[in-house]
Design a protein around this nucleic acid. Structure first.
Ligand SMILES: NC(=O)c1ccc[n+]([C@@H]2O[C@H](COP(=O)([O-])OP(=O)(O)OC[C@H]3O[C@@H](n4cnc5c(N)ncnc54)[C@H](O)[C@@H]3O)[C@@H](O)[C@H]2O)c1
Ligand SMILES: NC(=O)c1ccc[n+]([C@@H]2O[C@H](COP(=O)([O-])OP(=O)(O)OC[C@H]3O[C@@H](n4cnc5c(N)ncnc54)[C@H](O)[C@@H]3O)[C@@H](O)[C@H]2O)c1
Lengths: 256, 256
DNA sequence: ATGTCTTTGTGAACGCGTGCACAAAGATGG
DNA sequence: CCATCTTTGTGCACGCGTTCACAAAGACAT
C-alpha cells in the first residue's frame, strides 16, 4: 500500500487493476513451479488452486493482460510465464540498494529469492563506520555518505529501507532526492514522499496485531458477544477521563 | 490475507470491517508516539496525518469502535490507546512460536518491536540439530521434535513460519494440528489450512515485483498511451507469435 | 463436417471501501 | 443563557473488486 498522503488517483493507466497486479507475482510463482516440472499447459482451475485464489478471479485477472488462453485446453505455461514477467517488468534488470544492514538488512541481503527474478542487489549501505567494508552476503557494505553516488552510478530506482524507525524518513528523503522512485520500507514508520514515488511497507508487528484481533474474536465466539474475557477490564489502565462513555468501560462492540 | 481455499465469508462478525482492522495498528502506533510526548488530545485531522490516512476514513474507522471522541476537541489519546488495544486484543498476552531460526528467523527473534505489544516469544524452534540449544536473542533454540509439546505447554495460538518454502506446508500442518489457529508465513508458498485458521503472509519478492510494475510504468509514461506493447527491449515476442522467451525457452505456443 | 465436451472470457449483479459534505454536538467566550 | 466556533459522526454516492453464470470458442472424436 502506498503510504503517505497519496490516495492514488486510481491506476489511471487505463489498464491493470491494482488488485490484479498484486496477484500476478502469485500466479508467476505457481507457474514457475509448473514450468520446472515441465507441465505444458494448465487450466484456470488448476492454476487458481495452486495460487490459492478463485478461478474466476484468475481468469478475469488474465483477461486484463490479453487473451492468452485456449478454450477447452487452458493456458500454455511457458508463454504465460513470459507474458506475466513482461507485464511486471521482470524481463529487465532492476538494480536495488539496501539501506541499513543490521539484523534484518543482513538477512534480506542473504535472501536469494528476489535475486532470482530481475532484481539485483547493487549495493548494501549502512551509516555505521564499523560496518563499512564488512562483507555481507559476499558484498562489501558501503558507507551512507556515498549513497547519492552509488544510486547515480548504478541507475538505481528501487530502494529498501531496513534502518531503525528514527532514521527511515531521513534515509527516504535522501533516496528520493537521489532519484529513487520506489521504496520498500521495513521500518515501522509512515514515510512521506512526493507524488510519483511509490512506497510499500512490510511490518511484522502490524501483521501480528491483525492476527491477534481475529484470534481474540475466535476465542470469544459462540457465546460471549462482548468480546471480553479474563481481565479485559483492565481496571486502572483505562485512564479514562471521567466524561463520555457509558461509564465504566463497557466494551460497546456494536453500535447502531 | 487468508490463503488457501477459503475466501473468507466476509468478516461476518457483525462489526469492524477488515480494512479498518488493518489500519488500527497504524493508529495505535501514531497514538503511542503522541502518548510518549504526553499529548493529551488529538484531532482526527492531526492523527490522520500522523498515520498517513484520510481524516474522514479515520473518523469512520473509529465510529465502528464507538463514539470515543469529543466534538470540538478531538480524541483523548490515552483513552483511545486503550480502546484500540483492547479491540485488537493486545490487552492480553499472546505467546507465539517461531519456527525456522535461520537468517530471517534470527533477525525476527531479535526484533523488539512486537515484544512491546502483547506478543511474547514463547519458543524458537528449528529442525537442525546443530541449532538446538544455541542461544538466539537470549533464548535457547528448541528442536522441532518438541513442537507439539511446546505449543501445548505454552498455550500458543499464533505461529510464525520462517523455514524454507519446501518445509512450510509441513510445518504449518503440524502447527495447526497442535492447536495453532493463526499463522504468519514468511516462506514463499501458498499454505493450505482448514477453516478457522488465519494465515497472513509477508513476501519481500512479491512486494518488489509490485514496485517493479509501477516503476516500469513510470518509465514508459509521457507518451505511449496504447499500453499494449511497452517498448521494452524485448525484440520479437511482443504479441502472440509463436516466438517467445527471454531465457531462450521452448516456444511451443500454439496460441493463435 | 458435425457433434460433443471442456474451458475460456466476460457481462452483470453485488458488496465493500472510500471520500465528500454537512448536520449535530459540544466547547468556549461573552 | 446565548452565540460562535471547532470537530466529530455519518448519510450518501461512487468506484473498485469479487463472484456468478453462461455464451462462445476451440479441441477432439466420429
Ligand atoms: N529485525 C526484524 O526482524 C524486523 C522486523 C520488522 C521490522 N524491523 C525493522 O527493521 C529495521 C531494522 O531492524 P534491525 O533489527 O535490523 O535493526 P538493527 O539495529 O540491527 O539494524 C539497523 C541498521 O541500520 C543502520 N543505520 C542506522 N541509521 C542509519 C542511517 N541513517 N543510514 C543507514 N544505515 C543506518 C545501523 O547502523 C544498523 O546497522 C527497524 O526499523 C526495525 O524496527 C525489523
Ligand atoms: N531471509 C530473508 O530475508 C527472507 C526474505 C523473504 C523471505 N524469506 C523466506 O523465509 C524463509 C527463511 O529464510 P532464511 O534466509 O532464514 O533461510 P535459512 O536457510 O537461513 O533458514 C531456514 C531455517 O529453517 C530451518 N528448517 C528447515 N526445515 C525446517 C523444519 N521442517 N522445521 C523447522 N525448521 C526448519 C533450517 O534449519 C534453517 O535454520 C525462506 O522460505 C525464505 O524464502 C526470507
Amino acid at each position: 500500500m502506498a503510504t503517505g498522503r497519496t490516495h492514488r488517483p486510481a491506476t489511471r493507466s487505463r489498464g491493470i487493476p491494482e488488485a490484479t497486479v498484486a496477484r500476478l507475482p502469485l500466479y508467476l510463482r505457481a507457474l514457475t513451479g509448473l514450468s520446472e516440472r515441465s507441465v505444458p499447459t494448465v487450466s484456470s482451475e488448476e492454476l487458481a488452486a495452486a495460487a490459492g485464489v478463485n478461478s474466476a478471479k484468475l481468469r478475469k485477472d488474465f483477461s486484463y493482460l490479453g487473451s492468452y488462453g485456449t478454450r477447452g485446453v487452458g493456458y500454455d505455461v511457458e508463454y504465460l510465464v513470459y507474458q506475466i514477467s513482461r507485464e511486471l517488468g521482470l524481463t529487465q534488470d532492476w538494480p536495488i540498494v539496501m539501506v541499513g544492514i543490521g539484523n534484518l538488512g543482513a538477512a534480506l541481503a542473504n535472501y536469494g529469492g528476489f535475486a532470482s527474478r530481475g532484481f539485483r542487489v547493487a549495493a548494501l549501505i549502512d551509516a555505521d563506520p564499523a560496518m563499512t567494508g564488512k562483507s555481507v552476503a559476499g558484498m562489501a557494505v558501503q558507507h551512507a555518505d556515498d549513497l547519492e553516488k552509488i544510486i547515480d552510478d548504478n541507475g538505481v530506482s528501487i530502494g529498501v529501507i531496513a534502518t531503525p524507525a528514527g532514521a527511515a524518513q531521513q534515509v527516504c528523503d535522501r533516496l528520493v532526492a537521489a532519484g529513487v522512485t520506489s521504496i520498500l520500507n521495513f521500518a515501522p514508520t509512515v514515510l512521506s514522499v512526493p507524488d510519483g514515488v511509490d512506497v510499500r511497507k512490510v511490518d511484522l508487528s502490524i501483521e501480528l496485531q491483525i492476527l491477534a484481533f481475529h484470534e481474540q474474536r475466535k476465542a470469544g465466539e459462540g457465546q460471549d458477544d462482548t468480546a471480553d474475557e479474563a481481565g479485559t477490564e483492565t481496571p486502572a489502565a483505562a485512564a479514562k477521563p471521567a466524561r463520555k462513555g457509558p461509564d465504566g468501560d463497557v466494551p460497546a462492540v456494536m453500535q447502531a
